[in-house]
Each structure stands twice: as C-alpha cells, then as structure tokens.
C-alpha cells in the first residue's frame, strides 16, 4: 500500500486554457446549438399537439376541455425549454468530447469558466416569466371553474368499500349508475361511509376525494352526450380496482325519464333519508 499523498502540482506547468473562445469556434457553437434547438423545438411542438389529441380522452365537459387545453399549452411552453437543455447537452457530447491520451489520463483541463452573470440572469428571467405564465393560466382556469351557475343539479355521491352510489336528493332517487343532463351544471356533493375514496368521473375532467364525515364538492358542466366512467382514484383497500361506476350524459328529456323510471317511491325516499341521517351522524 502506498501511503503517499498524490502530487497535486503535476499539471501546474501547463498554461491555462483561454477563457474566451475564438470567434470562429464561438460562432460554430452558437449556430449548431441554435439549429439543434429549433429542430428539437419543432419536434416537441408536434409531439405536444399529437399526444394531447391522441392520448387524453375526448372532452365531455367544460372542465375536461380545460384539462386538454392546459396540457397542450403547458407542453408547448415546455417544448423550447426541453429542447434547449437537450440541444446543449447533445452538442456537448458531439463537439467537446475529448479523447484522453490513454484510458486512465483525463483530457487536458477546459477553460475555467466559473460563471456568467448574463447567462444566469437570462435563465432566471426566462424561468420566472414561464412560472408567472403557468400561474396566471392555472388561476384563470381554476377561477372559471369556481363559478356556480343558476339552476344547477345537485347529485349526492356516496363512496364506500368498494362501490359508488348516487342520490338525486330533489327527486328522491338513488342509483348505481351516474346519469347527468347535457348542458346543465352539476354539483356533486361527495362523501364516504368508511375510508377515503377518490370520486373521479374520468371524461368529465374533475375529481375530489370522498372523505368519511365530510362533504366535498366539485362542479362540472357536461358539453357532450355520451358514456363516461367513474373510477376511484384513492387506494381504498381490497377491491379498489373494482370500484367503478358507469356514467352517461343524456339529454334533458332523457334525464327526466331516468328519474321517473327510478320512481320516487316511498321506500326509496325513506332510504335516501336514512342514508342522509347516517352520513350526518358520522
């Protein structure tokens, strides 16, 4: 075993590499990185548009429309940033990779650039502008979702291990499937009888947890007729995977028929009242 301290002054005789690149090299660096950046940004934009439309479910509500546009806009905003990081790191490998003299000897030292106030400033400024943009976009989307429309429909959502059921308190109807009318804002009052569940009507683009002893609220305005799925988004034990329900957005007329079909019998209204009492007593 050698207990010698390695020699630190080995390359002290070598002159420092120049801090400033020569103009020609600098031009090459900037041009190639800019070109790479443009190409990658274009790819990023194309991917953003294609993926948003191909992957996200088609919009069935104002809120899902908001999700789709947010994902698209954020992806477009991120594309140039991602492209810049990738362009410079790819270029660093292409242009600055140095073959060492032998396997165990490092390449000669690079210019000791210890920082660049302008680069740091521009970087901070750009990321701050992007953050402000994200925040403003998010807050405006969010506050638009807080508006309560007149004549909204209230649906009580009850989660329990491992089934959803839905109560229409005005009509004194309960159901295993969630049926909502087109074009009318629906307010979901969500609660749970045991553990925390996540009420997630997927294609409606909103979700909120179902908490025992508490009522949480979300609102959606369905904009397209069709079928959607309600899933549970919060791990709730054994049959969490099977905790789903079917949903339909139907015309106002079909909605009336649905309520009539489920008939507000005395038995049903007694059950609805009993369930309400149970939840109140939690």
């Amino acid at each position: 075993m050698s207990s010698e301290h390695p020699d630190l002054s080995a390359d002290a005789t070598v002159a420092s590499p120049p801090l400033k690149p020569d103009a020609k090299e600098n031009k090459k660096n900037v041009t190639v990185i800019a070109a790479l950046w443009l190409v990658l940004t274009a790819i990023g934009i194309a991917l953003s548009i294609w993926l948003t439309s191909a992957l996200l479910p088609s919009s069935m509500s104002t809120e899902m429309g908001g999700v789709r546009s947010t994902v698209l806009v954020f992806s477009l905003a991120a594309a140039p940033v991602v492209a810049f990081v990738l362009a410079t790191s790819i270029y660093s490998l292409l242009a600055w990779r140095k073959a060492p003299g032998s396997a165990d000897v490092p390449p000669p030292d690079a210019p000791p650039l210890r920082g660049n106030a302008a680069a740091t400033g521009i970087w901070l400024l750009t990321s701050s502008v992007l953050v402000v943009f994200l925040l403003v976009w998010g807050l405006s989307e969010w506050s638009a979702q807080q508006v309560v429309q007149p004549n909204d429909l209230v649906v009580k959502v009850t989660g329990q291990q491992w089934i959803w059921n839905f109560t229409y308190p005005d009509a004194k109807v309960d159901s295993h499937a969630l049926v909502v009318p087109l074009g009318r804002q629906v307010q979901f009052n969500v609660t749970s009888l045991d553990v925390t569940h996540g009420f997630w009507p997927v294609q409606l683009g909103q979700q909120v947890d179902a908490n025992p002893g508490l009522v949480t609220t979300i609102r959606v305005t369905p904009t397209h007729l069709g079928h959607f799925v309600v899933r549970c988004s919060q791990l709730c034990g054994l049959y969490h995977a099977y905790m789903y329900a079917q949903g339909d957005v139907v015309t106002a007329k079909a909605f009336e028929q649905f309520l009539e079909h489920h008939g507000a019998s005395a038995a049903t209204s007694a059950k609805v009242a009993l369930l309400a009492a149970r939840q109140g007593g939690q």
């Binding site: 329990q160 034990g237 054994l238 049959y239």
Partner: peptide, 19 residues
C-alpha cells in the same frame, strides 16, 4: 363481495372484510 359490515375497525370493514 359482501357489503354488510361484518368486520372490525373503521366502518367494520377491516379484518374479515378486507382479508
């Protein structure tokens, strides 16, 4: 599954109901 709370703990859905 069974929806009658025949287990223990929260909501009586622990123990046998969750096993």
């Amino acid at each position: 599954n069974c929806e009658f709370p025949c287990g223990l703990n929260v909501g009586n859905f622990g123990a046998v109901m969750s096993a």
